[in-house]
Design a protein around this nucleic acid. Structure first.
Lengths: 252, 252
DNA sequence: ATGCTGCCGACTGTCGACAATCGTCAGAGT
DNA sequence: ACTCTGACGATTGTCGACAGTCGGCAGCAT
């Protein structure tokens, strides 16, 4: 029925040439569509809190600013709407999504769903998977530690989420990764929007270390409880920000 | 918050006209964009297995078939790509996503993550939430039962997924709903693609009844185990279809 | 002063057209 | 016979333009 193209398993043609000469350093040069680049740019701005909730993003204006036509801009905006970072009002354009307290609880509850399951599956996966996950998480914790040293709020929260993303990725289920990336973007947007003072670095490191230890030891119940607590605490700090005075408020 | 129309209290001249005439029955007439309608149409076709995996969906062709321009078609296709029902190859258009065995395992594993968490949260929610969920699930089971009577494969699988969607929805977390809707669409596409004979109706009903009972009784561990088994069995039947002979194969 | 009606500007939704990119295939060269 | 090169056809990525829709405001009637 279907004609197999019979092309020799693409890419093996010039490989040897590339291999001997130093050409292998050629990185697959930026092959992204305009809309993807716009989408990533805007996504980053939203995540970092540079755009205020409710702010209008008119296609025309963005297109003019970037000196492109409206088509790719429109495409980029639509992507972000599907990621729930923008909200769309019919015939009235898109605006930056505002997050209410209940949104934050939803986000963290959903994160809990995915992280818990991922953790559970990693433990099920046996010692090999567990070891690999532990290594990756320790590396992520190191990145978090160095971000803490720099003291940049945004880098810290990004590194924090990166730790959790690493946990989910270690389960090896791309569907979970996709779902989690949407949630982590929303969570980051929430965190960076209300400029909460980060907790003492040690506390953050220790708490993540707890997760690593529980995972390494294969203590399922301990791990699941730790994840749940970790996220619950984080969400409650985000939703109860009025105490902007002393209490070491801590996002996650 | 919401403006009550203030009709009543003697104002019987002007407002009463609206009140007495049947205008209140005017339902907010179909206000969907072209791209949304196209998207839903295609989504349904993919879910029902009318489009073969790998089949090319050229923008031009679809636009001509529907007698619209390429813009809304393109938008619709992009939506479906984000839902993982279509795959996009750069400059070569989109085609219907094929699902491998590992995809199926991923989908069912991810479903397990969300359903389990939803079930857990429903139990946490107390007797009120639990009762409402039980009612909704019983209604969903009834719908499944009537679909079984009709014997239409697609209606049965749709009703089956509807049951699980109801379970997730009962947790009251829209983020979980969104994530689950993507997974359920993929699962349905998998099921309807390989035309597997449905299991005996009684078996299907009983198994879902088990879930309802465990939920109503608040037996968390039983419920979680049941969900896990339920999905594991379903996935294994989908990924081991070669026995198209006798064994009552059963998708889910 | 209050409420309704019709215009106005701004923006999106949609359209047709052009240009860039990719896979294919014939053909030259070895 | 095999490999590489170049052109071809098809399809997407992008563009500028037009029409439809929405919120806001002025103007009129009450």
């Amino acid at each position: 029925m279907r004609r197999q193209p019979t092309f020799g398993a693409g890419g093996d043609r010039g490989e040897s040439i590339v291999a001997v000469s130093g050409l292998s350093k050629l990185k697959t040069l930026e092959r992204k569509s305009t809309s993807d680049r716009i989408s990533e740019e805007l996504r980053q701005m939203i995540i970092e809190g540079q755009l205020r909730p409710g702010e209008q993003l008119a296609e025309t204006r963005i297109a003019e600013l970037l000196d492109v036509s409206r088509a790719p801009v429109r495409e980029a905006l639509q992507q972000l709407v599907q990621q729930k970072l923008l909200v769309s009002a019919r015939n009235r354009g898109v605006s930056v999504a505002p997050f209410t307290a209940s949104d934050i609880w939803e986000i963290y509850d959903a994160r809990c769903a995915i992280e818990s399951h991922a953790a559970s599956r990693i433990i099920d996966g046996g010692p090999g998977v567990r070891a690999r996950a532990t290594d990756a998480l320790q590396a992520a914790r190191d990145r978090l530690r160095s971000a803490l040293k720099q003291g940049d709020h945004r880098k810290i929260s990004a590194a924090d989420l990166d730790f959790h993303t690493t946990l989910v990725a270690s389960a090896g289920n791309s569907r979970l990764d996709d779902a989690y990336s949407i949630l982590s973007a929303q969570a980051l947007a929430c965190i960076n929007r209300l400029e909460i003072a980060m907790p003492s670095g040690d506390e953050l490191i220790d708490e993540h270390g707890l997760l690593i230890d529980a995972l390494a030891a294969g203590e399922r119940e301990v791990l699941l409880t730790a994840i749940n607590d970790h996220l619950t605490v984080a969400a409650s700090h985000l939703t109860a920000p009025p105490s902007s005075n002393g209490g070491p408020s801590r996002p996650r």
